[in-house]
Simulated scan of single mutants.
Amino acid sequence: MKQLLISSCLSVAMALPAAAQEQEGPSLMERGAELFLEGLRQEMEPALEDLLGLADQFGPAMQSFLMEMGPALAELAAQIEDWSAYELPEMLPNGDIIIRKKPPQDEPDLPLPDPETGITDI
């Protein structure tokens, strides 16, 4: 984090005199940006290495899962045209998973007839 702060301050400090000077090659602003990006890369390198190690660790398991479940998931996706027409999956106490279809909302509510007269007000 210190390198990021130092790089940021350094790039700002080098950018101020760059406006007053003209020179050959990269400007102070460009050099400051390069230093900033280099510091950022150095800060992120350990996290990226950890991410690559995690991908190496879980890659074979994910590939096996997709090979086994891929055809079944593709068949399910072909059968269900509109996912928004279904409720969220629910797990029952016995372990079954159910996915209920949402009730249709485009049908208007019809008025009920008057119990005494049997006439419906429209």
Score class of each variant (00 low, 15 high):
residue 2 K to L: 08
residue 2 K to P: 10
residue 2 K to R: 11
residue 3 Q to D: 11
residue 3 Q to V: 10
residue 3 Q to P: 04
residue 4 L to D: 03
residue 5 L to E: 13
residue 5 L to H: 14
residue 5 L to C: 10
residue 6 I to D: 12
residue 7 S to E: 14
residue 7 S to H: 06
residue 7 S to P: 00
residue 7 S to W: 02
residue 7 S to A: 13
residue 8 S to R: 09
residue 8 S to A: 02
residue 8 S to Q: 08
residue 11 S to H: 04
residue 15 A to G: 15
residue 15 A to C: 08
residue 15 A to Q: 07
residue 16 L to H: 05
residue 16 L to M: 14
residue 17 P to Y: 05
residue 17 P to K: 06
residue 18 A to W: 04
residue 18 A to Y: 03
residue 19 A to G: 09
residue 20 A to D: 09
residue 25 G to V: 03
residue 25 G to W: 05
residue 26 P to K: 14
residue 26 P to Q: 09
residue 26 P to I: 08
residue 27 S to L: 00
residue 30 E to I: 02
residue 31 R to G: 03
residue 31 R to S: 03
residue 32 G to C: 04
residue 35 L to D: 12
residue 35 L to N: 14
residue 35 L to F: 10
residue 37 L to G: 07
residue 38 E to A: 14
residue 38 E to H: 12
residue 41 R to K: 06
residue 42 Q to T: 03
residue 42 Q to R: 13
residue 42 Q to V: 06
residue 43 E to I: 04
residue 44 M to E: 05
residue 45 E to G: 02
residue 48 L to V: 01
residue 49 E to N: 13
residue 49 E to A: 14
residue 49 E to I: 07
residue 51 L to A: 15
residue 52 L to W: 11
residue 55 A to F: 10
residue 55 A to Q: 14
residue 56 D to R: 12
residue 57 Q to H: 15
residue 57 Q to F: 15
residue 58 F to D: 14
residue 58 F to Y: 15
residue 58 F to C: 05
residue 63 Q to M: 12
residue 64 S to Y: 03
residue 65 F to Q: 11
residue 66 L to T: 12
residue 66 L to P: 06
residue 68 E to G: 00
residue 70 G to H: 08
residue 71 P to W: 03
residue 71 P to N: 02
residue 72 A to H: 15
residue 73 L to A: 08
residue 73 L to Q: 07
residue 75 E to Q: 07
residue 75 E to I: 00
residue 76 L to R: 06
residue 76 L to H: 01
residue 77 A to C: 04
residue 78 A to C: 01
residue 79 Q to L: 09
residue 80 I to N: 06
residue 81 E to M: 12
residue 81 E to C: 02
residue 83 W to M: 04
residue 83 W to S: 09
residue 84 S to R: 03
residue 84 S to F: 00
residue 86 Y to P: 06
residue 86 Y to T: 08
residue 87 E to C: 13
residue 87 E to Y: 09
residue 88 L to C: 07
residue 90 E to I: 00
residue 92 L to Y: 00
residue 93 P to D: 11
residue 93 P to M: 01
residue 96 D to N: 01
residue 97 I to H: 13
residue 97 I to C: 02
residue 97 I to D: 09
residue 98 I to A: 04
residue 98 I to S: 03
residue 100 R to Q: 15
residue 100 R to A: 10
residue 102 K to T: 01
residue 102 K to A: 04
residue 102 K to P: 02
residue 104 P to E: 11
residue 104 P to F: 05
residue 104 P to W: 07
residue 104 P to A: 11
residue 105 Q to L: 15
residue 105 Q to H: 13
residue 106 D to K: 09
residue 107 E to V: 15
residue 108 P to D: 05
residue 108 P to Y: 10
residue 112 L to Y: 01
residue 112 L to V: 07
residue 113 P to W: 08
residue 113 P to E: 03
residue 114 D to V: 06
residue 115 P to H: 01
residue 116 E to Q: 14
residue 117 T to V: 09
residue 117 T to L: 07
residue 119 I to H: 12
residue 119 I to F: 15
residue 120 T to N: 12
residue 122 I to F: 12
